[in-house]
Design a protein around this nucleic acid. Structure first.
Lengths: 159, 159
DNA sequence: CGTCATTTAGTTGTGCACAACTGAATTGTG
DNA sequence: CACAATTCAGTTGTGCACAACTAAATGACG
Protein backbone atom coordinates (compact mmCIF):
# COMPACT_ATOMS: atom_id res chain seq x y z
CA UNK A 1 0.00 0.00 0.00
CA UNK A 2 1.80 3.09 -1.22
CA UNK A 3 -1.21 5.39 -1.50
CA UNK A 4 -1.41 8.27 0.94
CA UNK A 5 -4.40 8.69 3.28
CA UNK A 6 -6.39 11.83 2.57
CA UNK A 7 -5.67 13.39 5.94
CA UNK A 8 -1.93 13.12 5.39
CA UNK A 9 -2.25 15.36 2.36
CA UNK A 10 -3.04 18.12 4.75
CA UNK A 11 0.27 17.68 6.53
CA UNK A 12 2.25 20.83 6.21
CA UNK A 13 5.45 19.17 5.13
CA UNK A 14 3.67 17.50 2.24
CA UNK A 15 2.62 20.77 0.71
CA UNK A 16 4.69 21.74 -2.33
CA UNK A 17 3.10 25.11 -2.27
CA UNK A 18 4.67 25.66 1.11
CA UNK A 19 8.10 24.65 -0.16
CA UNK A 20 7.64 26.86 -3.18
CA UNK A 21 6.62 29.79 -1.05
CA UNK A 22 9.52 29.25 1.29
CA UNK A 23 11.97 29.09 -1.61
CA UNK A 24 10.46 32.19 -3.14
CA UNK A 25 10.78 34.11 0.10
CA UNK A 26 14.31 32.80 0.68
CA UNK A 27 15.19 34.09 -2.79
CA UNK A 28 13.66 37.37 -1.83
CA UNK A 29 15.93 37.56 1.17
CA UNK A 30 19.07 36.97 -0.89
CA UNK A 31 17.97 39.42 -3.56
CA UNK A 32 17.20 42.02 -0.93
CA UNK A 33 20.81 41.86 0.22
CA UNK A 34 22.38 41.70 -3.24
CA UNK A 35 20.21 44.43 -4.76
CA UNK A 36 20.55 46.86 -1.88
CA UNK A 37 23.71 48.28 -3.48
CA UNK A 38 21.76 49.00 -6.66
CA UNK A 39 18.90 50.61 -4.77
CA UNK A 40 16.41 48.21 -6.32
CA UNK A 41 13.79 45.87 -4.94
CA UNK A 42 13.44 42.53 -6.61
CA UNK A 43 10.34 43.37 -8.69
CA UNK A 44 12.00 46.62 -9.73
CA UNK A 45 15.05 44.60 -10.79
CA UNK A 46 12.83 42.37 -12.93
CA UNK A 47 11.42 45.44 -14.67
CA UNK A 48 14.92 46.73 -15.32
CA UNK A 49 15.95 43.32 -16.70
CA UNK A 50 13.16 43.47 -19.26
CA UNK A 51 14.05 47.02 -20.26
CA UNK A 52 17.75 46.18 -20.56
CA UNK A 53 16.96 43.19 -22.72
CA UNK A 54 14.15 44.53 -24.89
CA UNK A 55 14.64 48.28 -24.83
CA UNK A 56 11.89 50.83 -24.27
CA UNK A 57 8.42 49.36 -23.98
CA UNK A 58 4.86 50.47 -23.29
CA UNK A 59 3.51 49.52 -19.87
CA UNK A 60 1.25 46.94 -21.48
CA UNK A 61 4.12 44.98 -23.05
CA UNK A 62 6.12 45.20 -19.85
CA UNK A 63 3.20 43.69 -18.01
CA UNK A 64 2.91 40.85 -20.50
CA UNK A 65 6.56 39.91 -20.08
CA UNK A 66 6.30 39.98 -16.30
CA UNK A 67 2.69 38.79 -15.91
CA UNK A 68 1.90 41.91 -13.94
CA UNK A 69 -0.98 44.33 -14.40
CA UNK A 70 -1.07 48.10 -14.21
CA UNK A 71 -2.22 47.95 -10.61
CA UNK A 72 1.22 46.63 -9.73
CA UNK A 73 3.28 48.34 -12.39
CA UNK A 74 1.97 51.90 -12.21
CA UNK A 75 3.21 52.67 -8.69
CA UNK A 76 6.37 50.61 -9.20
CA UNK A 77 7.25 52.59 -12.34
CA UNK A 78 6.59 55.85 -10.53
CA UNK A 79 9.16 54.83 -7.95
CA UNK A 80 11.67 53.92 -10.66
CA UNK A 81 11.00 57.29 -12.26
CA UNK A 82 11.48 59.07 -8.93
CA UNK A 83 14.82 57.21 -8.65
CA UNK A 84 15.81 58.61 -12.05
CA UNK A 85 16.11 55.23 -13.75
CA UNK A 86 13.23 55.52 -16.22
CA UNK A 87 10.98 58.13 -17.77
CA UNK A 88 7.33 57.61 -18.67
CA UNK A 89 6.02 59.32 -21.77
CA UNK A 90 2.61 59.22 -23.36
CA UNK A 91 2.93 57.79 -26.84
CA UNK A 92 2.27 60.38 -29.53
CA UNK A 93 0.73 57.80 -31.82
CA UNK A 94 -1.60 56.30 -29.24
CA UNK A 95 -2.29 58.52 -26.29
CA UNK A 96 -3.65 55.66 -24.21
CA UNK A 97 -0.22 54.10 -24.18
CA UNK A 98 2.70 55.11 -21.93
CA UNK A 99 6.24 54.35 -23.11
CA UNK A 100 8.71 53.40 -20.41
CA UNK A 101 12.18 54.57 -21.41
CA UNK A 102 15.51 53.98 -19.71
CA UNK A 103 17.36 57.12 -18.71
CA UNK A 104 21.15 57.25 -19.10
CA UNK A 105 21.39 56.41 -15.43
CA UNK A 106 19.00 53.50 -15.83
CA UNK A 107 20.96 52.10 -18.79
CA UNK A 108 24.25 52.58 -16.93
CA UNK A 109 22.97 50.60 -13.96
CA UNK A 110 23.11 47.48 -16.13
CA UNK A 111 26.89 47.35 -15.75
CA UNK A 112 26.60 47.09 -11.99
CA UNK A 113 23.83 44.51 -12.32
CA UNK A 114 25.92 42.13 -14.42
CA UNK A 115 27.31 40.38 -11.38
CA UNK A 116 23.95 39.90 -9.68
CA UNK A 117 22.90 36.67 -11.44
CA UNK A 118 26.25 35.06 -10.70
CA UNK A 119 26.01 35.95 -7.03
CA UNK A 120 22.48 34.61 -6.89
CA UNK A 121 23.42 31.43 -8.71
CA UNK A 122 26.30 30.94 -6.30
CA UNK A 123 23.93 31.40 -3.36
CA UNK A 124 21.71 28.57 -4.63
CA UNK A 125 24.58 26.10 -4.51
CA UNK A 126 23.25 24.64 -7.78
CA UNK A 127 25.29 24.30 -10.94
CA UNK A 128 24.10 25.57 -14.29
CA UNK A 129 22.51 22.29 -15.34
CA UNK A 130 20.66 21.86 -12.07
CA UNK A 131 19.36 25.40 -12.36
CA UNK A 132 18.24 24.76 -15.91
CA UNK A 133 16.44 21.58 -14.92
CA UNK A 134 14.69 23.18 -11.97
CA UNK A 135 13.65 26.08 -14.15
CA UNK A 136 12.17 23.73 -16.73
CA UNK A 137 10.22 21.95 -13.99
CA UNK A 138 8.89 25.18 -12.60
CA UNK A 139 7.85 26.48 -16.01
CA UNK A 140 6.04 23.21 -16.66
CA UNK A 141 4.33 23.59 -13.30
CA UNK A 142 3.31 27.18 -14.03
CA UNK A 143 1.85 26.22 -17.39
CA UNK A 144 -0.18 23.41 -15.80
CA UNK A 145 -1.42 25.69 -13.02
CA UNK A 146 -2.41 28.45 -15.42
CA UNK A 147 -4.37 25.96 -17.50
CA UNK A 148 -6.03 24.55 -14.38
CA UNK A 149 -6.90 28.01 -13.08
CA UNK A 150 -8.87 28.66 -16.25
CA UNK A 151 -10.74 25.38 -15.93
CA UNK A 152 -11.52 26.02 -12.27
CA UNK A 153 -13.09 29.38 -13.06
CA UNK A 154 -16.74 28.60 -12.40
CA UNK A 155 -18.91 28.83 -15.49
CA UNK A 156 -16.04 29.89 -17.68
CA UNK A 157 -14.61 26.70 -19.09
CA UNK A 158 -11.66 26.44 -21.43
CA UNK A 159 -11.27 28.90 -24.24
CA UNK B 1 32.54 26.05 -25.44
CA UNK B 2 29.59 25.50 -23.15
CA UNK B 3 30.15 28.35 -20.71
CA UNK B 4 27.64 31.16 -20.74
CA UNK B 5 28.69 34.77 -21.40
CA UNK B 6 28.11 37.05 -18.43
CA UNK B 7 25.61 39.23 -20.27
CA UNK B 8 23.41 36.24 -21.04
CA UNK B 9 22.93 35.62 -17.35
CA UNK B 10 20.90 38.78 -17.31
CA UNK B 11 18.48 37.38 -19.83
CA UNK B 12 15.11 37.15 -18.27
CA UNK B 13 14.43 33.61 -19.35
CA UNK B 14 17.60 32.44 -17.64
CA UNK B 15 16.49 33.65 -14.26
CA UNK B 16 15.30 30.84 -11.99
CA UNK B 17 14.01 33.41 -9.62
CA UNK B 18 11.62 34.54 -12.29
CA UNK B 19 10.38 31.00 -12.88
CA UNK B 20 10.03 30.50 -9.17
CA UNK B 21 8.08 33.68 -8.75
CA UNK B 22 5.84 32.84 -11.68
CA UNK B 23 5.14 29.38 -10.26
CA UNK B 24 4.47 30.85 -6.86
CA UNK B 25 2.00 33.37 -8.27
CA UNK B 26 0.37 30.71 -10.47
CA UNK B 27 -0.11 28.62 -7.34
CA UNK B 28 -1.62 31.64 -5.69
CA UNK B 29 -4.11 31.93 -8.50
CA UNK B 30 -5.24 28.31 -8.18
CA UNK B 31 -5.43 28.53 -4.40
CA UNK B 32 -7.46 31.72 -4.64
CA UNK B 33 -10.10 29.86 -6.63
CA UNK B 34 -10.03 26.67 -4.56
CA UNK B 35 -10.02 28.43 -1.18
CA UNK B 36 -12.73 30.93 -1.99
CA UNK B 37 -15.36 28.43 -0.84
CA UNK B 38 -13.65 28.20 2.53
CA UNK B 39 -13.37 31.97 2.87
CA UNK B 40 -9.61 31.74 3.32
CA UNK B 41 -6.65 33.34 1.63
CA UNK B 42 -3.64 31.16 0.99
CA UNK B 43 -1.56 32.43 3.95
CA UNK B 44 -4.59 32.06 6.19
CA UNK B 45 -4.96 28.48 4.93
CA UNK B 46 -1.33 27.80 5.85
CA UNK B 47 -1.97 29.05 9.38
CA UNK B 48 -5.02 26.81 9.66
CA UNK B 49 -2.99 23.84 8.39
CA UNK B 50 -0.49 24.30 11.18
CA UNK B 51 -3.22 24.62 13.80
CA UNK B 52 -5.05 21.54 12.48
CA UNK B 53 -1.86 19.53 12.56
CA UNK B 54 -0.28 20.74 15.79
CA UNK B 55 -3.17 22.06 17.83
CA UNK B 56 -3.23 25.35 19.68
CA UNK B 57 0.04 27.27 19.56
CA UNK B 58 1.47 30.58 20.70
CA UNK B 59 2.04 33.12 17.93
CA UNK B 60 5.78 32.60 18.24
CA UNK B 61 5.64 28.88 17.46
CA UNK B 62 3.22 29.48 14.62
CA UNK B 63 5.71 31.92 13.16
CA UNK B 64 8.55 29.44 13.43
CA UNK B 65 6.62 26.78 11.54
CA UNK B 66 5.67 29.24 8.81
CA UNK B 67 8.79 31.42 8.82
CA UNK B 68 6.64 34.46 9.42
CA UNK B 69 7.03 37.19 12.01
CA UNK B 70 4.47 38.98 14.13
CA UNK B 71 4.30 41.83 11.65
CA UNK B 72 2.66 39.44 9.22
CA UNK B 73 0.85 37.18 11.68
CA UNK B 74 -0.75 39.72 14.01
CA UNK B 75 -3.11 41.27 11.46
CA UNK B 76 -3.69 37.93 9.74
CA UNK B 77 -4.72 36.32 13.03
CA UNK B 78 -7.03 39.23 13.76
CA UNK B 79 -8.80 38.56 10.49
CA UNK B 80 -9.08 34.84 11.30
CA UNK B 81 -10.48 35.81 14.70
CA UNK B 82 -12.97 38.19 13.10
CA UNK B 83 -14.02 35.29 10.85
CA UNK B 84 -14.68 33.20 13.97
CA UNK B 85 -12.08 30.54 13.17
CA UNK B 86 -9.65 31.19 16.02
CA UNK B 87 -9.47 32.93 19.36
CA UNK B 88 -6.39 34.67 20.74
CA UNK B 89 -5.80 34.46 24.47
CA UNK B 90 -2.97 35.83 26.55
CA UNK B 91 -1.21 32.97 28.24
CA UNK B 92 -1.78 32.96 31.99
CA UNK B 93 1.69 31.54 32.62
CA UNK B 94 3.55 34.02 30.41
CA UNK B 95 1.66 37.18 29.72
CA UNK B 96 3.91 38.11 26.82
CA UNK B 97 2.65 35.11 24.92
CA UNK B 98 -0.65 34.85 23.02
CA UNK B 99 -2.16 31.42 22.46
CA UNK B 100 -3.96 30.91 19.18
CA UNK B 101 -6.79 28.44 19.66
CA UNK B 102 -9.12 26.90 17.11
CA UNK B 103 -12.80 27.58 17.68
CA UNK B 104 -15.32 24.83 17.00
CA UNK B 105 -15.97 26.44 13.67
CA UNK B 106 -12.25 26.59 12.91
CA UNK B 107 -11.78 22.92 13.76
CA UNK B 108 -14.83 21.97 11.72
CA UNK B 109 -13.47 23.74 8.66
CA UNK B 110 -10.82 21.02 8.40
CA UNK B 111 -13.39 18.62 6.98
CA UNK B 112 -14.08 20.92 4.06
CA UNK B 113 -10.35 21.52 3.57
CA UNK B 114 -9.54 17.84 3.15
CA UNK B 115 -10.13 17.93 -0.57
CA UNK B 116 -8.04 21.04 -1.19
CA UNK B 117 -4.61 19.36 -1.48
CA UNK B 118 -5.92 16.80 -3.91
CA UNK B 119 -7.44 19.49 -6.12
CA UNK B 120 -4.20 21.44 -6.01
CA UNK B 121 -2.13 18.36 -6.77
CA UNK B 122 -4.41 17.59 -9.70
CA UNK B 123 -3.96 21.14 -10.99
CA UNK B 124 -0.19 20.72 -11.07
CA UNK B 125 -0.45 17.75 -13.42
CA UNK B 126 2.38 16.12 -11.44
CA UNK B 127 2.15 12.72 -9.83
CA UNK B 128 3.02 12.09 -6.20
CA UNK B 129 6.63 11.17 -6.88
CA UNK B 130 7.24 14.19 -9.09
CA UNK B 131 5.76 16.42 -6.41
CA UNK B 132 7.96 14.81 -3.79
CA UNK B 133 11.07 15.26 -5.88
CA UNK B 134 10.31 18.89 -6.70
CA UNK B 135 9.63 19.56 -3.05
CA UNK B 136 12.96 18.04 -2.05
CA UNK B 137 14.73 20.22 -4.62
CA UNK B 138 13.01 23.34 -3.40
CA UNK B 139 13.79 22.61 0.24
CA UNK B 140 17.43 22.06 -0.68
CA UNK B 141 17.36 25.38 -2.51
CA UNK B 142 15.79 27.18 0.44
CA UNK B 143 18.38 25.79 2.83
CA UNK B 144 21.22 26.92 0.55
CA UNK B 145 19.71 30.38 0.14
CA UNK B 146 19.15 30.83 3.86
CA UNK B 147 22.76 29.87 4.52
CA UNK B 148 23.96 32.25 1.80
CA UNK B 149 21.82 35.10 3.12
CA UNK B 150 23.59 34.84 6.45
CA UNK B 151 27.01 34.92 4.80
CA UNK B 152 26.05 37.89 2.63
CA UNK B 153 25.05 39.93 5.67
CA UNK B 154 27.85 42.51 5.67
CA UNK B 155 30.11 42.28 8.68
CA UNK B 156 28.16 39.45 10.15
CA UNK B 157 29.88 36.34 8.83
CA UNK B 158 28.91 32.77 9.61
CA UNK B 159 27.96 31.84 13.14
C1' DC C 1 -20.49 60.99 -39.15
C1' DG C 2 -22.02 59.20 -34.54
C1' DT C 3 -22.30 55.56 -31.30
C1' DC C 4 -20.58 51.81 -28.80
C1' DA C 5 -17.26 48.20 -27.55
C1' DT C 6 -12.42 47.72 -26.70
C1' DT C 7 -7.95 48.99 -25.22
C1' DT C 8 -4.80 51.23 -22.04
C1' DA C 9 -3.14 53.45 -17.61
C1' DG C 10 -4.26 54.70 -13.52
C1' DT C 11 -6.72 54.54 -8.82
C1' DT C 12 -8.69 52.36 -4.78
C1' DG C 13 -9.04 48.88 -1.43
C1' DT C 14 -7.59 44.45 0.68
C1' DG C 15 -4.17 41.40 2.09
C1' DC C 16 0.67 39.78 2.60
C1' DA C 17 6.04 40.33 3.59
C1' DC C 18 9.33 42.46 6.05
C1' DA C 19 12.17 46.01 8.52
C1' DA C 20 12.28 48.88 12.39
C1' DC C 21 10.39 50.10 16.31
C1' DT C 22 7.47 50.12 20.96
C1' DG C 23 6.09 48.40 25.29
C1' DA C 24 5.20 44.98 28.49
C1' DA C 25 6.65 40.70 30.77
C1' DT C 26 10.22 37.67 31.96
C1' DT C 27 14.86 36.08 32.96
C1' DG C 28 19.60 36.44 34.31
C1' DT C 29 23.09 38.49 37.19
C1' DG C 30 25.18 40.83 40.74
C1' DC D 1 16.10 42.59 45.71
C1' DA D 2 17.47 45.71 41.67
C1' DC D 3 18.39 46.29 37.13
C1' DA D 4 20.01 45.12 32.57
C1' DA D 5 19.24 42.03 28.74
C1' DT D 6 16.06 39.24 26.43
C1' DT D 7 11.63 37.67 24.74
C1' DC D 8 7.21 38.34 22.80
C1' DA D 9 3.26 40.54 20.49
C1' DG D 10 1.90 44.43 18.39
C1' DT D 11 2.33 48.81 15.45
C1' DT D 12 4.02 51.62 11.68
C1' DG D 13 5.67 52.33 7.20
C1' DT D 14 7.11 50.67 2.58
C1' DG D 15 6.48 47.87 -1.24
C1' DC D 16 4.18 44.16 -3.94
C1' DA D 17 -0.08 41.32 -5.90
C1' DC D 18 -4.44 41.45 -7.42
C1' DA D 19 -9.47 42.52 -8.00
C1' DA D 20 -12.59 45.97 -9.23
C1' DC D 21 -13.20 50.12 -10.90
C1' DT D 22 -12.54 54.86 -13.58
C1' DA D 23 -11.38 57.72 -17.43
C1' DA D 24 -9.57 58.70 -21.72
C1' DA D 25 -8.42 57.36 -26.38
C1' DT D 26 -9.09 54.39 -30.16
C1' DG D 27 -11.41 51.56 -33.55
C1' DA D 28 -15.35 49.22 -35.67
C1' DC D 29 -19.70 49.48 -37.66
C1' DG D 30 -24.06 50.96 -39.09
Amino acid sequence: MTTTPTADWLRLDQQICFSLNAASRAFGGVYRVVLKDLGLTYPQYLVMLVLWERGDLPVKKLGEHLRLDSGTLSPLLKRLEAAGLVRRERSARDERSVEVRLTGEGAALRERALEVPRRIAAATGFDVDEIRELRARLDQLTAALDAAALEEMPGQGVQ
